[in-house]
Simulated scan of single mutants.
Amino acid sequence: MGPPGAGKGTQSNRVADRCRVPAISTGDIFRALQTADTPLAAQVRDTMAGGGYVDDDTTNAIVADRLAGTDCRHGFVLDGYPRTLPQVRTLDAMLAASGGPLDVVIALQTDEEELVHRLLRRGREQGRTDDTEGTIRTRLALYADQTAPLIAEYRQRGLLAEVDGLGPVDLVTHRINQALTALPS
């Protein structure tokens, strides 16, 4: 977990490759819905265009559906979920029903101005129309309000590994690998 632009997508894919499990990105799922012609897709498009988060019920349903996939039987890496305390409770229930515990939560620590710079560059390079300065700052404010409290929740549970998310991609990956290696078996 971490704010938008912290490198969650890049690093979750690397962790998933290392662990030989799928990386599940709610952001990727939501962006894929932007080209679909359904009421859900229209709702997601409108929310993302304004820089907001897709509501908990919709997000929970999409994640539950994805985690039911056979490729998730032996584990998965979540990127962008959960984002709110109610989503944490729903994930807890999903994991309890499947019998699989949450092993670790990696929190990428970053600098806000660096994030704005990264996301503006990503928007230009990838043609992502949702990466404008206004929507970026809205998403960062929403993260601080809604998602940052999850760090305290997971710290209290003893599941949090905080990692410096600044620097070259390979260095951040190395830091994450060190944090994962330090976990009790």
Rank of each mutant, 00 (worst) to 15 (best):
residue 164 D to Q: 09
residue 144 A to F: 02
residue 118 R to F: 02
residue 23 A to S: 15
residue 139 R to T: 10
residue 147 T to G: 12
residue 22 P to C: 04
residue 79 D to R: 07
residue 67 L to R: 07
residue 48 M to V: 05
residue 89 R to L: 11
residue 33 L to Q: 15
residue 23 A to Y: 11
residue 32 A to D: 13
residue 40 L to F: 09
residue 60 N to R: 04
residue 85 L to I: 14
residue 182 A to K: 09
residue 69 G to N: 07
residue 127 G to S: 10
residue 123 G to N: 06
residue 97 A to T: 08
residue 23 A to I: 06
residue 121 R to D: 14
residue 112 E to F: 00
residue 52 G to R: 13
residue 37 D to P: 07
residue 34 Q to E: 13
residue 50 G to N: 07
residue 100 G to M: 12
residue 110 T to W: 00
residue 176 I to D: 04
residue 93 A to L: 14
residue 173 T to L: 01
residue 170 D to W: 05
residue 99 G to R: 01
residue 158 G to K: 10
residue 34 Q to M: 15
residue 44 V to E: 10
residue 52 G to N: 09
residue 8 K to V: 12
residue 3 P to K: 06
residue 100 G to K: 09
residue 174 H to D: 11
residue 17 D to I: 06
residue 168 P to G: 11
residue 118 R to G: 12
residue 114 E to S: 15
residue 59 T to D: 15
residue 56 D to I: 01
residue 101 P to S: 03
residue 170 D to Q: 07
residue 63 V to L: 13
residue 6 A to T: 09
residue 109 Q to W: 06
residue 133 E to I: 11
residue 75 G to A: 12
residue 80 G to P: 01
residue 169 V to W: 04
residue 164 D to T: 13
residue 145 D to L: 15
residue 46 D to V: 13
residue 21 V to H: 01
residue 54 V to F: 00
residue 177 N to F: 03
residue 150 L to H: 07
residue 34 Q to S: 08
residue 45 R to Q: 06
residue 80 G to L: 04
residue 102 L to N: 14
residue 89 R to E: 15
residue 54 V to R: 00
residue 112 E to D: 12
